[in-house]
């Protein structure tokens, strides 16, 4: 006798449920072509290091004022109290400033890592955090190649702090405080497509000023926050070793193999079970 009815139903049931799950396990891929993400273009050749962005960002988000002196050799980092910081680097073209904050990736590793969808790539472009969903596992921090999400370790009700590109302002048609108030016009807000066009124009017009590269155009699958510079980006402390594919791509292969394992393994195990069970029966009969 082959497989009996009950076992068949069991197998069919497992396979059916898995097929249903197939759809939900797929990774949502944002279609770059028909979505206009907002982004920010930061031009380090214009930035004068006035720290207006830092101060206003802290004020707007109810965080403590900036700390630490802004000077070359003193590297400051974003943390749970500071969503953005400026740093000064001694480069081949003298002392230059650079702003650090969330990069708002097109396909963010943090959002792909989040098991509750608390980290979310909004359709407008900013990557935001939702405290009602977050369970504080910090897998977003493990996954983010830019080390952006920061965790309030010394709180009983800890939050994840990171730049949200002033999402509440954007959806009402406003622009982020840093871009709105930069006296040097080093921070420009717009759709990502416009910003890339603008950056290309600046590079073309100022061949002696800029290096021919936009940091963030391809890095980590493309980011919402992009940089222009007069020196190679690693001189400004940016990580130039990051891959150009998006980071969620790295775990895609594994996630895609899950449904197949779920479909193939149980019937295989059931088959082996049936086969060895028969052997046992035969052995028993022989012994008798």
């Amino acid at each position: 006798m082959g497989i009996n009815r009950r076992d068949f139903l069991k197998t069919a049931g497992v396979a059916g449920i898995t097929l249903l799950a197939l759809d939900s396990f797929g990774i949502e891929k944002s279609k770059n072509s028909d979505v206009e993400f907002y982004g920010i273009l930061y031009d380090s050749t214009r930035c004068a290091g006035c720290q207006t962005c830092e101060t206003l960002c802290a004020e707007k988000n109810g965080l403590p004022a900036p700390v630490g002196e802004l000077k070359a050799g003193n590297i400051r980092k974003t943390d749970e109290n500071h969503r953005t910081v400026l740093n000064c680097y001694k480069t081949s073209k003298g002392e230059l400033f650079i702003k650090t904050q969330c990069m708002h990736c097109n396909e963010p590793a943090c959002a792909a890592a989040c098991l509750t969808q608390a980290m979310c790539k909004t359709k407008e472009g900013p990557v935001t955090w939702n405290g009602d969903k977050c369970m504080g596992c910090r897998y977003c921090m493990v996954s983010c190649p830019f080390d952006v999400p920061k965790f309030e370790y010394h709180s009983a009700n800890p939050k994840i702090q990171k730049c949200t590109m002033c999402y509440e302002k954007i959806i009402k048609g406003g622009i982020p405080v840093c871009a709105e108030n930069c006296p040097a016009e080093a921070i420009k807000f717009g759709t990502r497509r416009e910003l890339i066009a603008e950056a290309r124009k600046r590079i073309a017009e100022g061949k002696d000023t800029y290096i021919d590269e936009i940091y963030g155009e391809h890095t980590a699958g493309g980011t919402g926050f992009m940089y222009l510079s007069s020196v190679p980006f690693n001189e400004l402390g940016l990580n130039t070793k990051l891959q150009n594919e998006s980071y969620p791509e790295l775990s895609k292969g594994f996630l895609f193999s899950v449904p197949s394992v779920f479909v193939l393994l149980p019937p295989l195990l059931l088959g082996i079970y049936e086969a060895t069970k028969k052997n046992k029966n035969i052995k028993n009969e022989e012994n008798e």
């Binding site: 396990f25 792909a112 098991l115 977050c134 369970m135 897998y139 996630l255 899950v258």
Partner: peptide, 30 residues
């Protein structure tokens, strides 16, 4: 793991409700 979760009261979110982060390996592991 619960000790390590910053916001353990939300631990049920990936199990019930509409907060399925299906693209997360951690969702699968949980």
């Amino acid at each position: 793991l619960l000790l390590d979760l910053g916001r353990p009261w939300n631990v049920v979110n990936p199990i019930i409700g509409n907060s399925f982060g299906t693209s997360s390996v951690l969702f699968l592991v949980a």
